[in-house]
Amino acid sequence: MMATFKKVKKTKRSDPLSDIETLSSLARRASRRAILNAKQAGVASVFIRDGIMFKRNPDDSIVEVKRGEPKPRLSIEDLSCQAYD
């Protein structure tokens, strides 16, 4: 059985938190700020690229932590517009 989806117009909304572009921008800025704060505090940060988990130390050295299977990248639209059965 196919799910029916309601078409959403790509216009600016009055509430900035319901605008996907604004949410994406806020998430990117928050992530970069958290990484910078961790580096300034002398704490390592962890990120995943192509299914591999890496740890970036405060001295900018990168160490592989764990290998996994690569998964497709998700966008904010994928996360916020999922259909439920």
Rank of each mutant, 00 (worst) to 15 (best):
F5K: 14
I76E: 09
I20W: 02
A83W: 09
R33Q: 14
E21H: 04
C81S: 15
D50A: 08
S24M: 01
V43Y: 05
Q82F: 13
K6S: 12
V63M: 11
T11C: 12
T11N: 03
E64V: 08
R73N: 07
R56D: 04
R29D: 03
R56L: 02
D15A: 11
R29P: 03
P70H: 04
A83F: 08
R33E: 13
T4R: 13
E64A: 10
A30P: 01
S14T: 00
D59Q: 07
V46I: 10
D78G: 10
R32P: 00
V8A: 14
I48F: 06
E64I: 07
P70M: 02
R33W: 02
F5I: 14
A44G: 06
I20Y: 03
V65G: 07
K39F: 03
F5V: 15
Q82A: 13
E69F: 10
D19E: 12
R49C: 11
D15R: 01
I20Q: 08
G51N: 03
A27Y: 03
V43T: 12
E69Y: 04
E64F: 09
K9Y: 04
N57D: 11
S24D: 02
M53K: 12
K9S: 05
S31K: 11
R13I: 07
A83K: 13
I20V: 09
A3R: 15
A41G: 08
P72Y: 01
R33A: 10
T4N: 07
A83P: 11
D50N: 10
C81L: 14
D85L: 13
C81Y: 15
A27T: 09
D85P: 15
V63F: 11
P16V: 00
K55R: 15
K71V: 15
M2R: 11
Q82G: 14
L26D: 00
E77N: 14
A3I: 03
S80T: 15
S14R: 05
I20C: 05
I35G: 06
K66F: 06
K39N: 07
P72S: 08
A38L: 10
L79I: 15
A44E: 10
S24V: 00
F54G: 05
